[in-house]
Design a protein around this nucleic acid. Structure first.
Length: 419
DNA sequence: AGATATCCCC
């Protein structure tokens, strides 16, 4: 390959100069007998959009762009490669006269994990209207789009299509369907699919276990995990993070510890997510020092990792430490989110820090652009009420965007009784 | 003549 180190073919691309196609020229070693380069294959060898655009230009000039295979290679690179460009892929796709199912699959796959997953569903509908047959490389991605959109209705429609096209036994597709139903909270539908799977691969176990864990059905999640181990299936990091989440929420410290031992024994890599799950499990179960030492050892931490530790400290009465960690989090330039402030404000509640709490509460929207939710109001009413500021607490409740719940009103009533 | 999936914090 003749690519230069910076991925550019030329020091500086100049319009209308022969050199502009230097890269392509490099595939004509003999001037006497120039052999046309195989453009579609060349598209696969690109490492940058710059290179791809030159090949695309050549395809247009030589009229090869109307060749299905050639256009597919261009779309595939732009849509899926790391150095691609989804908008460019869309432009090429939209100007293709008769996109085939490979192109649709590629675009659906790319759009499913984009910021506009719904576009993938729209593409799927277009594909069906054109009479193209969706296949095993269509459904996993359109289902992923459903998961990222969090919408149940198209999932049912797509489920019907899966059956219609006879693909209900494809592991990747069943996995997608189960996850769809789990995300939408329809554990009944998810379980039914799970029971019908002919062979329970790890993938499927993980889908159903994480579904139960995410929907706060910790006992079902742990029971299925037991069943899975009983069948000799070995869990991986993804399975174990869901199991740890179930242990965290159900107070199953012993089970959580066993999982930790298993991770050590099997030398499973503890990355960001599994690390966070461990910290959360120990923190929620009151093993703050274990949680803390694991947290400190993490090579990478995201907002969720900090949240697990901060909330754990706050709930177990270590308000000062929770604050200190919140400050460290900001120093580390990790953006706090909604959950972070639930932790920080509940630390204020535990420590009775009214003024600090007020300041943080106001900063939520002003500094971080996060609209306070019911949990944050709950903390504030609690703080104001305990400080005897009943009128202020009532005023705060009246100004809420959401309806006050039992926690908020209970905090106010309790304060009224005390004062 | 072409490719696939999962997980954490409320």
């Amino acid at each position: 390959m003749m690519f230069s180190a910076d991925g550019m073919f030329l020091p500086k691309p100049r319009l209308f100069k022969r050199q502009s196609f230097n890269f392509l020229a490099s595939f004509h070693p003999q001037k006497s007998a120039p052999k046309p380069p195989h453009l579609p294959l060349l598209a696969d060898k690109c490492t940058s959009m710059n290179q791809l655009k030159q090949i695309h230009a050549q395809m247009i000039v030589s009229d090869r762009i109307h060749d299905d295979y050639a256009a597919s290679r261009i779309i595939s690179f732009c849509a899926l490669s790391d150095s691609g460009d989804l908008n460019y892929a869309l432009k090429v796709f939209n100007t293709t006269r008769a996109p085939n199912s490979f192109m649709f699959n590629t675009m659906i796959r790319a759009q499913a994990s984009s910021s506009n997953p719904f576009e993938a569903i729209i593409l799927y509908i277009k594909m069906r209207k054109l009479g193209l047959i969706p296949g095993k490389y269509t459904f996993p991605f359109v289902l992923k789009a459903c998961i990222n959109c969090c919408s149940l209705n198209p999932s049912k429609q797509i489920h019907a299509d899966v059956v219609k096209f006879g693909l209900e036994l494809d592991m990747y597709i069943v996995n997608g369907l189960i996850r769809c139903y789990c995300i939408c909270g329809d554990m009944g539908a998810a379980r039914k699919l799970f029971e019908e799977v002919p062979e329970w691969k790890l993938l499927i176990w993980t889908a159903i276990i994480s579904g139960y864990a995410r929907n706060f059905c910790s006992n079902e999640a742990l029971a299925l995990f037991d069943q899975m181990l009983g069948q000799g299936v070995e869990p991986d990091a993804a399975t174990l993070s869901s199991v740890l989440s179930a242990c965290a929420r159900s107070g199953s410290l012993e089970m959580g510890k066993q999982v930790h031992v298993y991770i050590k024994e099997k030398r499973i890599e503890v990355g960001l997510i599994l690390g966070t799950a461990l910290v959360d499990m120990y923190a929620k179960n009151g093993e703050i020092s274990v949680a803390r030492s694991l947290f400190d050892k993490m090579a990478e931490r995201n907002t969720a990792s900090w949240n697990a530790m901060i909330c754990g400290l706050a709930v177990h009465g270590h308000a000062e430490e929770a604050f200190r960690l919140f400050q460290e989090m900001q120093k580390a330039k990790i953006a706090p989110n909604y959950v972070t402030f639930v932790g920080v404000l509940s630390a204020c509640c535990h420590a009775g820090l009214l003024e600090v709490g007020k300041e943080i509460f106001l900063s939520m929207k002003r500094v971080y652009g996060i609209e306070p939710g019911i949990e944050h109001y709950g903390c504030m009413v609690n703080l104001l009420g305990r400080g005897g500021k009943l009128a202020e607490a009532e005023e705060l409740i009246n100004g809420m965007l959401c309806e006050p719940d039992i926690v908020v009103l209970g905090a106010l009533l309790g304060a009224c009784k005390d004062h």
